[in-house]
Design a protein around this nucleic acid. Sequence first.
DNA 1: CGGAACATTGACCCATGTCAAGTGTCGTGG
DNA 2: CCACGACACTTGACATGGGTCAATGTTCCG
Lengths: 236, 236
Amino acid sequence: MLMQSPRVMAGRAFTPPSLTSAQLTSGFEQKLAHGVLRRIECRELLFAEGDPASHVYRIETGAIALNKVLADGRRQVIGFAYPGDLIGLGIEGEHVMNAQAVKPTRVRCLPVSALRQCIAEDPALGVKLYEALARELAATRDLMLTTGQRSAVERVASFLLAFSRRNRRIAQDPTSFELPMTRTDIGDFLGLTIETVSRTFSKLKQLGLIELPCSNRVKLLDIEPLQNLADGEHKP
Amino acid sequence: MLMQSPRVMAGRAFTPPSLTSAQLTSGFEQKLAHGVLRRIECRELLFAEGDPASHVYRIETGAIALNKVLADGRRQVIGFAYPGDLIGLGIEGEHVMNAQAVKPTRVRCLPVSALRQCIAEDPALGVKLYEALARELAATRDLMLTTGQRSAVERVASFLLAFSRRNRRIAQDPTSFELPMTRTDIGDFLGLTIETVSRTFSKLKQLGLIELPCSNRVKLLDIEPLQNLADGEHKP
DNA sequence: CGGAACATTGACCCATGTCAAGTGTCGTGG
DNA sequence: CCACGACACTTGACATGGGTCAATGTTCCG
């Protein structure tokens, strides 16, 4: 097949599929600060596919998994949202995904009517939301490339490196972090079973690339070979 | 695991990941009509990942595959665009995907500056573009659910049914159509190899669900069982 | 007519899924 | 404070769907 030259490297997969509200305007920030604070239990749904999309939410603490479910229960996690992220944007009307807390979580709620008012007051906000949506689309496509084409090690390595990058971005330790979600969540995100996720973690541990002090805490010992694994530099 | 009830059925995967410009305003339509018409050879790239996003394009005839490539050549097709679809929307700056013609194709080109002018003249257009992007995001997520969780038969059946639906929407025969793309394109779209795609087509033929008069023409003989296959009603 | 590109089919293999048996770890109640 | 149960995670043995490699057909176009 006539293939275009692979000019672009793997790309930054797993950019969080949600808008960090830090980028937004102060009027919006003010409205949000007055919004209702809602507490969500671990595993509780903030909203479900088909629910009327009445609000947008900003995560204050905790973590949310955005997912879709097939009739027989197979589940695809589309992305995770962390403190600062804004979720519930998109088409007016109905939510198209479930938003499930993976740990006890607090969110600020903003009615879409208030959001609309914000946009009317500050048209630049509309542009920012458009751009945020575009970035989210780009992130989802990167994830597709990963779940569609990569092997288990590549997927897990990419996943860990995404955490590392996120931590660097928010000025926290990029080599050691807590995974707020379960193996099931990770598996459903990467399109793998929990067993494969677990085995792959063990493999990376054996290779001396990571440490697992406890099951939900990861220390990256050597980022470069991890990056090579993620980029598929082990096949040829 | 505490699973939410699977209240939502499989969803309409594979809604074309691009905007049909029919929904747009007449001012926009006028500008487009004056836009340059460009011819693209089969397999030629309309734009590549990393190119400056100077224009948006509307497909007039032919078909385009939007894809991303890993460093080692593995390719993920994110979606296909057909006549009437608008592509190149999204983040300003650089294209984040390749757009490759899967057959000889003609597109109308509109500079993003002109698009911006249209939006200034008609703010409602901005909203429509936002909604279009949101629909595209929803479609991409549906595709993720498919490539991440479904088996080969399920993927191929879904793919064919998406064609059927599209044809119904544009008032053409929903039971018989031409596949403009190669097996490689289909495979890279569904996350399968060409051999698996081919074998799966053969299997559906043996099951009496489809006919393949020639390799790029499909006739759906019995849609309902095909839908059941797509929805995974064969496992239990 | 001939060759290139695409598609099909078969044989085999391997990565990952499945099933099952442990092993932590945490929270609760005695 | 400990014992217990629930749940999450790990690990092993085995099964299998789909990938890989290779041979053959088919179609289309020069």
